[in-house]
């Protein structure tokens, strides 16, 4: 069926089998392979993209459900050649090894900071009605939807702490 996807500010007119997930639409039909397919079942977070400001698993949603959405993928985080603060911090703190989970980690971390700024609580937040402080425990809990088998969690957390403090 005909559908439109707006990705990183560009509109794409697509004719898709309704079975095509948002992830496969990005990777196979638009050619943006930054978002990764690690499990295809919402169990790893490698496919994380930002849809209307919210991080989601692109593998567990259909492309045709996002006709009105603004999608941001890892390819849309930098401004031209200038990396986003989060991308740069990942480089500075070596928040990656094989790199396969990295796009998902970056999209997740970017959106996570906005969630925290908006005062959203997490499982480890002491007071549901208090203010949100991004402690290390808060960051690790909020980033636990993104597996990293190389286990760069130390670097990832350090990178996020740096950006959060800016």
């Amino acid at each position: 069926m005909q559908t439109t996807l707006t990705v990183n500010g560009t509109r794409h007119q697509l004719d898709l089998d309704p079975r095509v997930t948002l992830l496969d639409a990005l990777r196979e039909h638009i050619g943006l392979t930054g978002a990764k397919k690690g499990c295809d079942h919402g169990q790893c977070g490698a496919c994380t993209v930002i849809a209307d400001g919210r991080r989601i698993n692109a593998c567990l949603t259909l492309a045709v459900m996002h006709a009105d959405a603004e999608i941001v993928t890892v390819e849309g985080l930098a401004e031209g050649k200038t990396l986003s603060a989060m991308q740069q911090a990942f480089l500075d703190h070596d928040g990656m090894q094989c790199g396969y989970c990295t796009p998902g980690q970056l999209c997740s971390a970017t959106a996570m900071l906005e969630e925290a700024r908006a005062g959203r609580a997490s499982h480890v937040t002491e007071d549901l009605e208090g203010t949100t402080r991004l402690t290390r425990d808060e960051i690790t809990e909020r980033m636990s939807g993104n597996l990293c088998r190389c286990a760069c969690y130390s670097g990832i957390v350090a990178a996020i702490e740096k950006v959060a403090a800016e």
Binding site: G42, G45, T48, R54, R55, I56, N57, L60, T61, S108, M112, E115, A121, S122, H123, T125, L128, R142, S144, G145, N146
Partner: peptide, 15 residues
């Protein structure tokens, strides 16, 4: 709230 925040991941809860 507590039960919801204990489930799944932030990405999944967003959908």
């Amino acid at each position: 709230s507590r039960a919801l925040l204990a489930g799944a991941s932030p990405q999944l809860r967003n959908r």
